[in-house]
Design a protein around this nucleic acid. Sequence first.
RNA 1: GCCCCCGUAGCUCAGUGGACAGAGCGGCCGCCUUCUAAGCGGCGGGUCGCAGGUUCGAACCCUGCCGGGGGCGCCA
Length: 581
Amino acid sequence: MPGLTAIVNALLVPVFDRLQPGASPGVRTSERADLQVDGALALARSLHRAPREVAEEIARQAWADGLEQVCLSVEVAGPGFLNLTLSDQFVAHALGAMATDDMLGAERAARPVKVVVDYASPNAAKQMHVGHLRSTIIGDCLVRLLGFVGHQVVRENHIGDWGTPFGMLIEHLVDIGEDKAAHELAVGDLELFYQQARSAYDSDPAFADRARARVVLLQSKDPETLRLWRLLVDQSVAYFDRELRRLGTCLTRDDVVGESSYEPLLPKVVEDLEALGLLVESEGARCVFPPGYSKRDGQPLPLIVQKSDGGYTYAATDLAALRDRVERLGAGLVVYVVGLPQAQHLGMVFAVARMAGWLPEGTEAVHVGFGNVLGPDGKMFQTRQGGTIKLADLIDEAVERAAAVIAGRSPGQERLGADELGEVARAVGIGAVKYADLSTDRSRDYRFDWGRMLAFDGNTGPYIQYAHARVCSIFQRAGQEMAGAPVAFGPLSEPEERLLARRLLGFGDAVAAAVDAYAPHKLCGYLFGLASAFTDFYEHCPVLRAPDEATRASRLALSGLCGRVLAKGLDLLGIEAPRRM
RNA sequence: GCCCCCGUAGCUCAGUGGACAGAGCGGCCGCCUUCUAAGCGGCGGGUCGCAGGUUCGAACCCUGCCGGGGGCGCCA
């Protein structure tokens, strides 16, 4: 279903086209009117005419062309803007159409493709931390958004399960014994395991020698080494699965496609690069030099695919993965939810893939980068001791803090039972963490602050959830299901009804904006505006005690649609919407 | 030295070509016999890092500079 701006835009395009082919009406939402049209100003310039005069002419012609069907009035304002006031009938009609649309007014992708989303990507035998949390939360939201608008989404959790670190990890496993190692990994004590392996490697030359020898065994597919490696990876994956499940993500064990999966493809990547004449041997390493990248000294910067010792680099793995996703899976778009420091590396990988023809015309690879997670002090988010914050501890703390806030609610209201309180605390705590991450521009560093993310005021998860719970409360008192809310929207005579209606009709545009820019925060911003508009409406417009039956039905319809949009919006963010809080 | 990201109210952040730059928090003042006051309204608060340029119009685009962070050959 086309959005509101699209409908009005379509009405105006012929008028603009007549004055100058291709001119854009520039319809947008506005604080001064239901919709605003900016295009007359730009048009006036290229026609060398007075802007207000052009605006008047457009208004007249558009009115005759059918704008009358949807608008109560069109006014020329300021230097030449058109302010549109939509007619009540049209707003009511649009709301009705939205309420009966299973996309709630969002538009399907014009060209649906298979999209691979590469996200989360923790390292086997290593703790998951806040960096993985960001990738996971943002990636999961994009998976939901892209799927919602009709793309076929393939999730890939590209875990680090191959390479030189596994020599020392396997030797450490051998040293402490398989049973003990399995136990440590199973209970999620990966930090300890990794650090011990690391320190043995750094301090014990004999251990380091064994570790290096083990890498060779692993690469030559020695059966016993592979068995031990498998043990490490399986335990790690089981641990990741538990944490990701608790977080409430779309990722499952089936989505784990580790670096090792691409290992068999690496020789062919290098062979083919060589056959294409792209491979250059430099200082013993085998490299590709994509144009546009340079080193400190201004010389071309290589993407090293094979080291001088014959080992493959992660550039080779990334190339193999990208190639596999396009060639075998048939991906038209591959999205990498990876930290911003990887921008140059991924840019080079994409460039080389293009040069090699592995990323043909019409297919696209996108780096959806993100900034660091900072602590409340503005420095890297760490424990007081300077250690990594475990994802599991973070989730525990979120749920505990949410429970404390919920338990401290003002007296005189219905108390939640212990079971429900636990469930709500889980939804609110985890939702707060996710929302805080998603609600700011992902390319910036973001400051992790418990107090702010769990506040019930402002652009927070709990605030949106609370607005939804209030809608549910109305329906509970009315003895109705929200899903079965009326879809007949009345006159909307109060300003708060009107504003709520306008905000509701913006859902499709908000989804499109978030998808187009891979920017979840645009959806968050929309939901905050909607929740605010609902709260305003709720304060000023009694629903169940409305003055008359028609108003009551209309307000119930508005509430119901709002509740559904809030729930859907939260769902797209990967956040639950409890019915009571 | 080159490249990338960031710089907006005391704080945390929206806004990336359109009308007087917005929100939340914090501060001050109001609002609960009324569908959840976990809320709402009001007041105060900004040379949009600096300087040029393009444009009818710039926080937004271009150039230079300042400040913070990151990257720049065999770790991933």
